[in-house]
Every structure is written in C-alpha cells, then in structure tokens.
Amino acid sequence: MSLTTDPVSGPYQYLKAQSRWRVLEVAFWLCTLLPYFLFPNYLVLASQIAITALFALSLDLILGYAGIVSLGHAAFFGLGAYAAGILSKHGWGEPITGLIVGGVIAALVGYASSFIISRFRHLTLIMITLGLGLLLHEAANSAHFLTGGADGLQGVKIWKIFGLYGFDLWGYTAYTYSLIVLFLGFLLARRITNSPFGLALRGIRENAVRMPAIGAPSHAHIRKIYTISAAMAGVAGALLAQTTETVALEVLSFQRSADTLVMLVLGGAGMLYGGIVGSAIFMIARDQFSGINPQYWYFWIGLLLIVVVMVLPNGVLGGLKKLFTTWRGPS
C-alpha cells in the first residue's frame, strides 16, 4: 500500500536509478579507446564499426523501444550519405555542417513518412518500410544527374575537421570523429530512453492500443521517435560518406537494412548497447573470417548467427545479463 501512495516519486526514482552511470558502462566506453593503443592498424575498421553502431542504435530506438519493425531503415542512412556527399561535391566539404545537413534531410523525410508508419504495426510495417526503402533506392538509381547512379557519386572531397584534422590513411581522424559522434548519439538515445517519453515508447511496444487509454498518444510518440531515429541514421550515413569519401547506391540497399537488423538482434535489441556490441561482433567476425577465407566466410557468419540465436535468444547482451543475474542469485 505504502509503495504506491507517491505517484511522482515512484516512477521518478525508477528513471533516476536507470539513468545513473554504472561502472560497466564507463568501462565499456573506456574500452572504445583501446584500438588506439592495441590495434592501431585496425582503426579504419573501427571507424566503420562506430558508424554501423550508430546506425544500429538508431534502429534500436524504433525497433527495440517502440516496436517498429523496419526493413528499410537504410533509406535514411542513404539519404544522409547522399546529402553530405552531394553537398561536398558542390563545393561545401565542411564535415560538421555536412553531418547536420545529412541528419536534417533524413529527419524531414522520416517525419513525412512517419505519418504512414504510425498507422501500422508488425507485418504491414515490414512491407511498407521495405517498399519505401526500395523506392528510394530506385529513385537514386534513376537520378543519375544528382547521384551518379550505379557508378556512385564522384568528386566527394571532405575538408579537414575544424581546418585541422585531415582524414588520414590510417584512420586516426576517421575513428576519433566517428567515435565522438557515436558517443553523442548514444548520450541522446540514453537520455530519451530513460525519460517518461522512453517509458511511453516501451508501453507502445507492448500494447499500442492501450497506451492512448492511459493518456499517451501512440501516434504522436511514434512520429516523434521515428523522426529522431531517421535523423540519427542520416548522421551515420553522412559519417560514412565523409570518412570514406564515397557514396554509392549500396548505402540505400536492402542488404544494409537487413545486416543492421541482424547486428541488432545479435547484440540484443532494446538495450542501447545491443547495436554497438552486435555491430562490433558482426564486423570483426566478418573481417577475420573473410581474411581467412575470402570465398566461403559467409558460412561461418551464418553458423555464428544460428548459435547465438539458439543459445542466446535475447542476443549476446541479453545472455550476459541473464548469466549475471543467475550468478548474483535472485535479488
């Protein structure tokens, strides 16, 4: 009885406890600095992992938290990449503004499409997001004058960051830049998920119809998070375009949407760190397996996925969490 008498402090305390930084989290972010010292030859890969992680994080916001299944999220990634790339091609190669433009354009399209997205759930959503993704892919293919079509965008040149740090062959700048953006994106996602709005999203994931009954407008919430997620995906795409100075149709491909979904599931959806861990595991495994055997490495990736899904249904992080609670004993 006494537990429920204070309607404000209950949930408030819960959210406050959630948003406290744990030792493990601090340790995790310190680990992201390790590549500088331990694997300085792998910084290019590390930068692409950070970019993919940011993209996976954006997908986690809608899939893991709001329960919006999307197979076309690469649309926003690609929009961001093309926006930043085309901007630089036409003479403005400043990276930070490029990121912002990429994010804003993806957000605008995300906002427009969110009106459709918020009306549907589950299988219908998969079809719609898939369709939107394919439409954009084909549009980019046809708009040869703007995107370079199947040959990819030519002439992307990115200036030095703050006029000081140019993108080097070893990937120092690329990794530092991507890592900082990933961390900022993560802080934003963490703030969102640990807010009342984040709680409402989880409510929508569990039951979208009941949420309006307790005064939380499902459609408005979904539109909001979808736009934020699209912006984040756009920033990730812009990052990839800038650090690699290439944009090709592949940034919009179904394969990219699907791969990211797989990474998220591998790491554990709905846990913030799931996307980051998943993309790190997936991309490192891919790098190592394909280095050993360039022809048939997909076999090992497939095997890895099957094992993870069978043994750890909630992803690697979900598994670790379970192990941790068992070890701690029921609290």
Binding site: G152, T244, A248, S290
Partner: peptide, 23 residues
C-alpha cells in the same frame, strides 16, 4: 593477399584498400 568486397560496396573496397596498405 585476397580481400572480399561481397559485391558492389565502395565503402568496403576503400576500407580494404586502406587496410591492405596500412595493415
């Protein structure tokens, strides 16, 4: 030293080229 791009993937190709040179 053989490296796989998996298809049309300029970002991967660029990374692989960088890694081949650096690593």
């Amino acid at each position: 030293i053989r490296k796989d791009t998996g298809g049309i993937a300029p970002d991967v190709a660029r990374r692989l080229a960088q890694e081949l040179v650096v690593r």
